[in-house]
Nucleic acid binder design. Sequence first.
RNA 1: GGCGCGUUCGUCUAGUGGCCAAGGACACCGCCCUCUCAAGGCGGAGAUCACGGGUUCGAAUCCCGUACGCGCUACCA
Length: 515
Amino acid sequence: MSVTRTRYAPSPTGDPHVGNVRSALFAWLFARSTGGVFAVRIEDTDQERRIPGSEERILNSLRWLGIEWDEGPDIGGPYGPYVQSQRLEGYGEAAERLVELDAAYYCYCTTERLDAIRAAQQKRNVPTGYDRRCRNLSAEEREQEEAENGSHRVVRFKTPLSGRTTFNDVIRGDVSWENRLIDDFVILKSDRFPTYHLANVVDDVAMAITHVIRGDEWMSSAPRHAMIYEAFGYTPPAFAHLPLILGSDRTKLSKRHGSVSLLDYRDEGFLPEAMLNFLALLGWSLDDKTTQMTREELIAGFSLDRVSASPAMFDREKLEWLNGVYIREMPPEAFVEAARLYLDNGLPPEIPRPLDDGLARQAAMLTQDRARLLSEMPELCEFFFTDEISFPPALIWAGMGDKAMKRMADAGDDLWRVPLPEDAEVVRAWLTAAANAIEKIEPWNHESIETRFRALVEELGTSGRKLFGAVRIAATGRTAAPPLFVTLEAIGRDRSAARTRAAAASLLDTELARS
RNA sequence: GGCGCGUUCGUCUAGUGGCCAAGGACACCGCCCUCUCAAGGCGGAGAUCACGGGUUCGAAUCCCGUACGCGCUACCA
């Protein structure tokens, strides 16, 4: 058997859509797994909907995921050019040929007339479609139309009036339509640009595409394509219509479901490996338990007959989990580098740039296994960098495990307005003792900090949970943070001491304010 | 309205006639670990396999019908 050739044929009419990119991924995986060729072809036949920059963004999303193409608009290839607006003559000729073959005809009907018949059909509740007026024009009529309206003629395909058109879908098996239900669709528009149906077939033939792998929304167009192949006398390629990707309301994923552009996910800090892995699992699976797969494993394991026929909902929750898995697996150095960008951009502007390298490094390493998204890093790491941290003194009790206080904190209540518990004076003494201890710890590393703090717990007759919890809030302002001793080490002795002292003082102030 | 496709835990899925009183993963709940949060370990709850008929010794798996959902129904792709 000859080499398999697949293609991804996006229209530059917007940002790279998750669903489209998933189609690209499957076409690419199929090509790679069969040792075939994967091409990208830009289908810019709709001049009105064209959006500048869209083509580059689509290509970039593929590059980001590591889906590399063998032939395409930027690198060319043996069947170029790979942009439809540069192949216009071919479509015109193809349309002419179909007319000569008596498989197509010129239509002079105006948009107004077309709209009117459609409206009438809808009103009568009958199937919409062109009424074939121009299909049966006499020679004289045609001449007259040509003279009067020749400038805005289109070419329509002469759909057989009876019979059935059947094609075999790799994923769904034989699918067949009654020809009489398919109208005479336009193949060449009045601006001499082809419609998708013509351009797609002409190019797939020209580019020797063996497998058309595309989204399920194309299913209903497939019989038209099959007819065009047949009219030309070409053997059609294999078709594989991929299950749709759905939003949370079970309709086709679109903008109103939130982020739908791959680039948005990239900017949010999803890792390309995670995204690739996740997308591959939308409508395909290797077996009953494998979920995590590298690019190579995907290629090795992919096959079209394991593609599901039913649509799949886009589950962001699962994507985030998978991303977290990939983040945790990153070599620390790589993660530090990746996180650095998000820290630079996302940390409050009052923190001086460039960021302290050592601190950024430590902060990133300490939060690596807590992040699901790179974009969470600034929030996760902020307290490492700020000079002053601010928090309601009552939060200290939440940190010490006080259930009621914790509940209020979690509920987002204003803890500034909550009166301090009776033991505020005791806690203040602990914090003061901790601050004093911190100033004397030598050497300044997490081992000696821990040793000293464990001893302090004994001296104060309290528990680690309470003391460490109180100091955690003092040093970070958070109830959730990396382990205390490494955190203090990273923050540094001076800051740790100052923050702990400030926390103690805040309890005093509040006491005074209350009395 | 017409046509097409689809229908297994909330979600992604495994399952291609007996191994399934349906397995895995996310999410959820609990326990363990533990200075908090994560991570990790262990366990739990969660699907009468859309429904109804067949075929068969035997059906989630094959056939028919029904329902529901989605997609398409442009000189858009």
